[in-house]
Design a protein around this nucleic acid. Sequence first.
DNA 1: TAGTGGTCTAGACCACTAC
DNA 2: TAGTGGTCTAGACCACTAC
Lengths: 252, 252
Amino acid sequence: MLRDGPAHRPSTKAHDLRIGLLDLIESAGVGERLPSERELAGRWGVARMTLRKAIERLIEEGRLERRHGSGTYTAQAPYARLFGLSSFTEDMRQRGLTPSSKVLRLRKVRASTDAASRLQIPVGEDVLRFTRLRLADGEPMALETVLIPSADVPGLSTKDLAGSIYEVLWDRYRISTASAQTTITPVLPDERSAAALGIPSSQPCLHIDMTDLDNRGRTIMVADCLYRGDRYELTIDLAAPAFPITKAGVRQ
Amino acid sequence: MLRDGPAHRPSTKAHDLRIGLLDLIESAGVGERLPSERELAGRWGVARMTLRKAIERLIEEGRLERRHGSGTYTAQAPYARLFGLSSFTEDMRQRGLTPSSKVLRLRKVRASTDAASRLQIPVGEDVLRFTRLRLADGEPMALETVLIPSADVPGLSTKDLAGSIYEVLWDRYRISTASAQTTITPVLPDERSAAALGIPSSQPCLHIDMTDLDNRGRTIMVADCLYRGDRYELTIDLAAPAFPITKAGVRQ
DNA sequence: TAGTGGTCTAGACCACTAC
DNA sequence: TAGTGGTCTAGACCACTAC
């Protein structure tokens, strides 16, 4: 059933099983139970240990979860996979704060040379550009400007921007971030940004620049964020054995 | 040979094998070859697959390396494991810059309440405290103050502080960092720091506060660093499938 | 060519869950 | 108690290395 062409590189059985498992995951809903390991191993004619290896890799990737004695389940929506850094909404909730947003601008623009280069699209292409004030417990926390190729998000409007953009991209367009590149620098805000954030322009801020890529390395969007240095701190926990965990913290 | 007490928690064979493997790693030099999987499995009376599982975990932790057809080897010194963030020396080299250091102060002090709490030692205990200017291509890049319990590093002196402290701790005291907690905030430097870094005090900087822990969760040292915002930027690459890679970048 | 790691098999028994 | 994942066994054959 599974194997394909002859002169193919990674063609191990575990890799073929991966494809089959991904199909199952795709067609299943979030949190749904897969057939048992014995059932799947039998169905695909492989040893259970071999199947388990393929499952383990998908667990590492955050696509599956196992519950001892119960079963193997599809994991939560992939937009939650990139830890704290990716989603302001998630960050704030983890801190026990209530996130909200105020859309300051939303319009369609033509990609500048710089934007086109970052988005990997032709110069002049239509791009949706919006700026939001992100709040925590009603108080300004960050100012964020996002660029997304218009063609990817037909019909996206202001009312979709109340919460996590990751959630909207996934729920509505089935777009999900597989990796992100982030650059962090300390800056002083310009007058306008300082006013929007409610801080003096002498207050240092974290400038967090992010590019989100899908699983084929194509750019999904770029985001330019300015976080208040007096309220926000970035925490990175690096652990040698397990995965480094990155999360954002809030200074009390 | 391996199993210990009865009412013990993780007591799987793979866990017992881990202990045996760690002993081998400890007594071997860096880059040395271990006995083959078949040899070790025979010696310890387990199936090869079981041994492999224990080896795989140590590979994930960066302690071992496998070379197909050749053997299993002890990995490079563990101080290099924590990616860019941990070692200024490594960071700069990766960027093609030449790192150097200038020790500004080094003395033994008594732990303040705050220091004692961060280092997990009694208040008033002897602590080695040093401040270094870190340079890249001869130009100031960061100002760093480090605290280490004196008892852990007998004989450490100024001449040991020319390069990576991680390297010294490992080579000389066999102390290695297993995890690190880092907090990042944007700040304006005080007059004295600004002068040392050769920047105006209106130049925002990244304040990076780090606590290094060993594999039992004990604090090894705390470091307080001020990075020039005009020369230094932090880059974080998050990838969903593999390990997030954190590295520091230098603005050109 | 001998020895190594890489993958896979077809079982076994245990620990846990959900009923 | 039936079904699930968790661990382990004792092999097999393949791919690669180092000589």
